[in-house]
């Protein structure tokens, strides 16, 4: 069809009824400290969108242990407790057992969940604690500026594997989701990413499903999110998302690892 050179007088469409997307009200209106392009802030945003859409802002308690996201409670407008490094799943156990009909979640990095907190996470999973663990896997210790994490890939350079991670010396990258998936107490394990629009949409759905499984009391839910760390990887945000796609995701494939059968 021929290009209509319609001289369009652009009507001001910036009006409430034309609104398609806005920042969730459950995200506090402050600057987030995360580096430009960091997946943490994306996950904060979409998780708070889910909390807003499910209308559970007053019925959810979060636990933010040490890591880049220790300041999550400055951004998420929900009741939260800050936990010692690695102890989020124990703190969350204490909360959920006392308030069984509230939603509880932890928001942990790879070092917190799989290194220092490995035992707490493993046993919370084995007890089938009915809360959600949001696990940001960016293969490095972000806050402390770039050390090797349990999920650092073989050959990956970090400040504590300057010549690349050598499994003979530093062990292999740990797939925690697969490790706990077989445990009967574990209801839902999925691995997602937020390095492109489609993945962000899928991650948001996964987070929502996990909270719904929690509502049904199905047990431990782990949503692992493969993410970027532009600053410590010394890449631009776009390069880091490319690295996630081409290097991390091949080793940490996306998709559901364990899904509870839920009678519709």
């Amino acid at each position: 069809m021929a290009e209509e050179n319609v001289d369009v007088l652009v009507e001001n469409i910036v009006t409430p009824e034309n609104l398609v997307y806005r920042k969730p009200t459950t995200l506090l209106d402050v600057d987030m400290h995360y580096c430009p392009g960091c997946g943490h802030s994306t996950v904060h945003k979409i998780f708070m969108e889910v909390v807003e859409e499910m209308g559970i802002q007053n019925d959810i308690i979060g636990v933010a242990p040490v890591g880049c996201a220790v300041f999550a409670y400055n951004y998420m407008d929900v009741d939260m407790q800050q936990a010692a490094h690695g102890r989020a799943c124990a703190v969350a156990t204490g909360i959920k057992r006392m308030l069984p009909d509230k939603y509880v979640f932890t928001y942990q990095g790879d070092g917190d969940l799989a290194a220092i907190g490995g035992n707490e996470t493993l046993h919370a999973a084995n007890r089938g604690e009915n809360f959600l663990v949001i696990f940001i896997n960016n293969a490095v210790y972000g806050m402390t500026s770039g050390q090797m994490a349990p999920t650092t890939l073989e050959g990956m350079v970090t400040t504590t594997s300057p010549y690349g991670r050598d499994p003979k010396v530093m062990g292999y990258p740990l797939k925690f989701g697969e490790l706990i998936a077989p445990l009967p107490g574990v209801a839902y394990v999925t691995r997602q990413a937020v390095n492109n629009v489609q993945n962000v949409r899928r991650t948001k759905k996964a987070l929502q499903r996990a909270l719904e499984y929690q509502k049904m009391g199905l047990g431990f839910c782990l949503v692992e999110i493969v993410s970027n760390c532009p600053s410590n990887w010394k890449m631009t945000p776009l390069e880091s998302n490319k690295y996630v796609q081409e290097v991390l995701i091949p080793y940490y494939p996306l998709g559901d690892i364990k899904v509870p059968e839920v009678k519709k």
Binding site: V20, K23, Y34, P36, H40, S41, K45, V197, V200
Partner: peptide, 16 residues
Amino acid sequence: NCAIICPDAVITVYRK
């Protein structure tokens, strides 16, 4: 798309 990928939710989108 821009608003969905934006880590800091700085973009508000309208459509008619």
